[in-house]
Structure formats: structure tokens, C-alpha cells
Simulated assay, not measured.
Amino acid sequence: MKSGSIAGYSAPQIALHWLIAALVLFQLVFGESMSVALDAAGEGEAVSASDASLASAHYWIGIAILVLVGLRLALRLTAGAPAPQPSGTPIFDRLAHAVHWLFYALLVAMPVTGLLAYYVSPEIGEVHEIGKPVFILLIAVHVAGALYHQFLLKDGTLRRMLVPSR
């Protein structure tokens, strides 16, 4: 099914959006524990129970995000997605399109680089860490766009990510 050929998102698509968003937020807030735990272990120091638990959660949540993003992309390909609401400003429309696809790229790249850093080469961790400020920037732009559509354009864009249409 093609993008734009449906009126709104399905309940599973909306649930995946918000679940992935919550998991990413957890990763952004608590992800430093992975570095702390790995650094301590590498220096032969004891890892605190909280850092060990949060590092383990970071690992497994990263894998969960990768799996859920795969499911979300599969749903997008099979169920489709509604056409974006035009903002009236072509550059904003292009920016919105780019931000959405950068999110998908980052949602795949972050878990993959994290796993590669853990299993292949710790140096890849530096690439992985660059993703955090990029994620924060994308989230800020995404939220600003959603609020712009909701409160200035009043076009119902935000409602599409809150209320299933099918």
C-alpha cells in the first residue's frame, strides 16, 4: 500500500509510535549508565548495581527498539500511511519529510552501532554517542512541528497520532 493512500494511522501504528518514543526517551535519559558500567569494568572497578541494571536495560531496550522499528516499517509498507498535512510552506514540508526519514535511519543506526560497539569495537561507541544530540535535535524539531500544526495551523495532524482512524 502506498503512503498517502489512507486517511489516518491504525491503532497498532499509533501504539508503536508512542512505545518507541517512550523507549527512546528512556535511552536518552539513562543511556549514560552503559558507558559508566563499561568504563568501570574496563578499569577493573566494581560496577554499581544501579549502573549494571541500567546498562542491561539500555542493551535490551535498544534491541527492542530495533525490533519495534522493523515492525513499524513493515506496517507502514503493508498498511500505508496518510499523506502529510501541508504546512503552506514548502521548506517546512521538506523538513518534515526529512525529519521523519532521519528518525527511521537513526532508530535503526543507534541500536546497530551500539551492538557493534559492544561486540566488535569499542571505537564504534563514539559513532553511537553522536546519535544522542542528533536524536534530541530531531525530537525538538518534530515536537515543534507537531505543535505548529496543532496550534497555528489547526489541521488535525496531532490527532492522527492520538486517535486511530481504522
Rank of each mutant, 00 (worst) to 15 (best):
P86K: 15
L75I: 07
L68I: 02
I20R: 07
A81F: 09
A83K: 15
G88D: 14
L38D: 06
F92Y: 12
S33H: 07
I91F: 15
W101V: 10
R72C: 01
V29E: 05
L23I: 10
L102M: 14
R94F: 11
H97E: 15
A52R: 02
A81T: 14
E43Q: 08
A109G: 13
L107P: 01
L23W: 10
Q85C: 07
E45H: 03
P84M: 13
L68C: 04
A98I: 10
I91E: 11
W60F: 14
A49C: 01
L25P: 04
D93M: 12
L23H: 11
L71E: 05
I63M: 04
V108G: 07
M34L: 14
V67D: 02
S87R: 12
A96L: 05
A74V: 02
A81Y: 11
D93F: 05
E45K: 09
A74N: 01
G44I: 11
D39I: 02
A57M: 05
A49M: 03
P82Q: 10
F30G: 03
G31L: 09
L23E: 05
L19N: 10
Y104M: 07
L73M: 03
A46Y: 01
A57C: 02
A40I: 00
S56K: 04
F26H: 10
M110T: 04
P90L: 10
M110K: 06
D93N: 07
G70F: 08
V36R: 07
G88W: 13
V47F: 02
F103D: 08
P82R: 11
Q85N: 08
I61M: 13
I63Y: 08
Y59H: 09
S48N: 00
D51A: 04
V29W: 15
D93K: 06
G42L: 08
L38Y: 09
I20T: 15
A41Y: 08
A64E: 06
V36E: 02
F92K: 08
D39W: 01
I61E: 12
I65Y: 09
